[in-house]
């Protein structure tokens, strides 16, 4: 027996998790049938430990199998299930029902600003195109025998922006992106920041040139929607501001670190 529970221990009665009925109003769109998206409501019996993703699963598996949404790991790592929940961009797998006001219906819709494909699924191609455009890979000319060394402080400098999981919650929360699809978007800038401020990387100037564009960082109006939306808690608006500073001062080394 490899169980961690000591045998013979008194079985403590586990209180039943209280259940309740929640109403989800989901913005549905089937490109084969509909010309316009429409709202459809579902009542599901859920528990306080459940997340919005569990409610979507319950609807898909027990009520309406045609409901379409993306999810892969279901634990906040893969970044597949970003959606607008009660008007805010959230990961369905990280949003607990008990944290929402369940006396009212929960509105769920696809993230905005990207072409809607079906129900909660959007076309992510434009998002990944702008991600690719900032060249999110290490550019280094040195060929060391072992690893490229870096101090703790140097690593700390860009630690925040390494957390990005490319869920598009930040980019699709931005009013500028909603109306201007040409805008590079936050995830691209965050991932550029991750390399611009990396001491091992030598391509900072190339990326700053790309972002110093009409559709680059100057489109940012600092509305902070992106910082609120990020499921990883990345300070997106701050990262964009640091890239702006790096462009103005000509080099990332000259940007003072605001703590």
């Amino acid at each position: 027996m490899s169980t961690a529970i000591a045998e013979g221990a008194p079985a403590t009665p586990i209180a039943e998790v209280p259940s309740f009925t929640v109403t989800l109003i989901i913005r549905r769109f089937d490109p084969d049938v509909d010309t316009e998206p429409h709202w459809q409501d579902f009542d599901v019996e859920m528990h306080g430990t459940d997340r919005v993703l569990d409610a979507l699963h319950k609807i898909k598996w027990e009520i309406d199998g045609s409901l379409s949404f993306r999810r892969s790991c279901a634990h906040g790592v893969c970044g597949s299930d970003a959606m607008r929940i009660n008007g805010r961009n959230r990961l369905a797998c990280k949003t607990l029902l008990k944290d929402l006001d369940i006396t009212k219906p929960i509105y769920v819709e696809a993230i905005k600003g990207l072409p809607l494909e079906k129900d909660l699924i959007v076309d992510m191609d434009p998002f990944f195109e702008s991600f690719k455009a900032v060249q999110p890979f290490l550019m280094a000319s040195s060929k060391p025998e072992k690893e490229r060394l870096q101090s703790v402080v140097q690593r700390e400098r860009f630690d925040d922006t390494t957390k990005c999981i490319l869920c598009a919650a930040c980019t699709s929360s931005c009013p500028v992106f909603w109306t201007d699809g040409q805008y590079f978007g936050h995830a691209a800038i965050v991932n550029a920041h991750r390399f611009i401020f990396d001491s091992r990387d030598e391509g900072a100037q190339v990326r700053l040139d790309i972002l110093n564009d009409k559709e680059g960082v100057w489109r940012c109006r600092t509305t902070f929607n992106c910082t609120d939306a990020c499921p990883r808690g990345i300070e997106v608006t701050k990262a964009i501001a640091e890239v702006k500073q790096a462009i103005l001062k000509g080099s990332p080394e000259r940007v003072s670190i605001a703590l």
Binding site: Q135, D209, I210, N212, D213, K214, G216, W218, I247, L248
Partner: peptide, 16 residues
Amino acid sequence: YAPPKKRRVNWEKWGW
């Protein structure tokens, strides 16, 4: 890498 088209003056930056 193909560098972006260079404009003479970067109006967005100076405007900002």
